[in-house]
Design a protein around this nucleic acid. Structure first.
Lengths: 329, 329
DNA sequence: GCATTGAATGTAAACAGTTACATTTTGCGC
DNA sequence: GCGCAAAATGTAACTGTTTACATTCAATGC
């Protein structure tokens, strides 16, 4: 039904090899021949069959982005951002991109091998076991926004420690001493990075971290509102709250507003991720910005290098973060 | 390097045909043989090669989701929701899903045909020309959240008219008469549906639509704040505002708060899409809910029916919407 | 005019499966 | 033990490319 290389070969009166070369190494065929071939292809509305090509070349140019994340919306703003970067860069390299949740991936009857994936970007909370599973199938792995201790992989991370440091410093500069943190129960790697960085930053400024100023919240607004309310209701409450992410920080804003507190006068609030919800609140939320798009792009670049067999220059890439100061602090 | 069907054939002492059948029509091979084959496959760590299979079968089970949308984040919450539904369902059918923006798609050097896509879901503001381009290549098309007049396609839509009607009715029931609408400049189909439905609904309730109560906003918060501020500042301002989507409605909330108005006492506000930002504001935003996930799933189901050559029962599927009432109204 | 050489082109064997058709095996009734 | 039908298995052609190697062509120097 669809025209094949042989049809073009016949119509243009050259061999299939020449037709193939016309498309893939045009400089190796004489101009006159090339034009004859292209004309024939145009007439027949021919274009090379990617499958046959993949078969002959033994490569698929197919990569996957696997989001390892249990609860809540999978393509939340954070991962959507990374995803966009991955999409953009995949298109640039003409890779085919498959996106899936870890859950769905496992459930699918086809194994990775059957899907002929040559590389995979693991996002979120992937476990070592999963990484090994891919590596055993000779599938290259890049990890984004997560790190597994003792596992030597190409990582793409953002500078959680510095971002947190900036947030704390900003609050200190605004005169705050009683700074609380609402830590989160989402990605363990991210949560512990931010939590530890917070402790360190407070330390650097010679500030005591009182345990009653440290709370944990689920990564949803209701939970954060609840936790923040309790935090703010105690006597001698904190004058500033650092939320482990924007959702939690927005919860804190809502809690403060409901308690009749003025932001940032009575309590200053800072979030993390700089997502779009920062501009929905009144006042708007100060937050640490992460270049998600860029993270995604770098993932694909690393994968490409791996697939080409190149040495990866930096195994772990840490992107800079910066604080976007808004009305809440 | 990877074991092939011939390796398994050799090791298990049967023909390649039998090996193939073992995997695809297990009931056609004797139990004893089957076990021998599977054991050999296990030993060799063999699994069938999807590319060779696609080649022999002349099908790829590959579909694409193309987001036709110029400005702003491509995978915004709305499309991410649809996307999740598509992902989920694709996995269920064992389809391979390719996601791309229209822009990147065009930029990619590979044509659809080369990518061997068997069906495509067009989201956003796709033009007729694009649809024809696919159909000319025998690629099935399903359209989501958009409709092209005079084009007979499978459509998956949500009930914009009824959603709008519910919003207006709700406001009327709350005693509002001076209801303004801030229409949007995003997807033309959606925007005109919601705008016309608004006019109709007002009409049904015997309410006049004053032109000074109708405004247009870009789909970002800053623009909406500006427009809403002007709207509310006029003398004899509206007592309720219906935003064409949540972003616009949130802008209206912010404008009202900044003007010192009490919500919903002085002005009630309703949005559309019921996205996560509805719960970030104080008070929270009443909004029309759309089952995005479901829309995505239905898209894949329709595509599957098309690809199987079945008659599609309903060419256009319209999903019900409902109003989630919150503090803003 | 004839080697020589490099460029252009052709030939045919992969790549890893599927499947129509041919052949063998099996089970069963007599 | 034989005939027969059905079940199980095997043979080999086919899917649409790429590419190593072989061949032909064209240009150059003598």
């Amino acid at each position: 039904m669809n025209p094949t290389i042989r049809d073009v070969s016949k119509l243009s009166g050259v061999s299939t090899a020449t037709v193939s070369r016309t498309f893939f190494y045009p400089e190796r065929v004489k101009k006159a021949t090339r034009e004859k071939v292209l004309e024939a292809a145009r007439v027949l509305n021919y274009s090379p069959n990617a499958i046959a090509r993949a078969m002959a070349l033994q490569r698929t140019d197919k990569i996957a982005f696997l989001i390892c994340k249990a609860h809540s919306s999978i393509l939340d703003e954070f991962y959507a951002g990374i995803c966009e970067g991955i999409m953009k860069e995949s298109n640039a390299y003409d890779y085919q991109l498959l996106i899936s949740t870890e859950e769905d991936w496992i459930a699918a009857t086809n194994s990775a091998k059957r899907k002929q994936i040559e590389g995979v970007i693991l996002g979120g909370n992937a476990k070592a076991e999963r990484v090994l599973e891919f590596q055993n199938q000779n599938i290259h792995v890049v990890m984004v926004n997560n790190r597994i201790a003792g596992m030597n992989l190409p990582y793409v991370l953002s500078d959680e420690r510095d971002g947190t440091r900036q947030a704390v410093q900003h609050l200190v500069e605004r005169g705050h001493q009683k700074i609380a943190m609402i830590a989160g129960r989402f990605s363990p790697y991210i949560c512990s990075e931010r939590y530890n960085a917070f402790l360190d930053a407070m330390n650097e400024h010679g500030l005591k971290v009182e345990s009653r100023y440290i709370r944990m919240s689920d990564p949803n607004i209701e939970s954060a509102v609840e936790v923040a309310t309790a935090l703010l209701r105690q006597k001698d409450p904190p004058t500033a709250i650092f939320g482990a992410n924007d959702v939690i920080a927005v919860g804190a804003i809502k809690a403060a507003l409901r308690l009749g507190l003025r932001i940032p006068r009575d309590v200053a609030i800072v979030g993390y991720d700089d997502s779009s919800i920062c501009c929905t609140t009144e006042p708007e939320l100060t937050s640490v910005h992460i270049d998600r798009m860029r993270m995604g792009q770098i993932c694909v670049q690393k994968l490409q290098a791996l697939m080409r067999g190149e040495e990866i220059p930096e195994q772990v890439t840490v992107l800079p973060t910066w604080l976007n100061v808004r009305g809440s602090s």
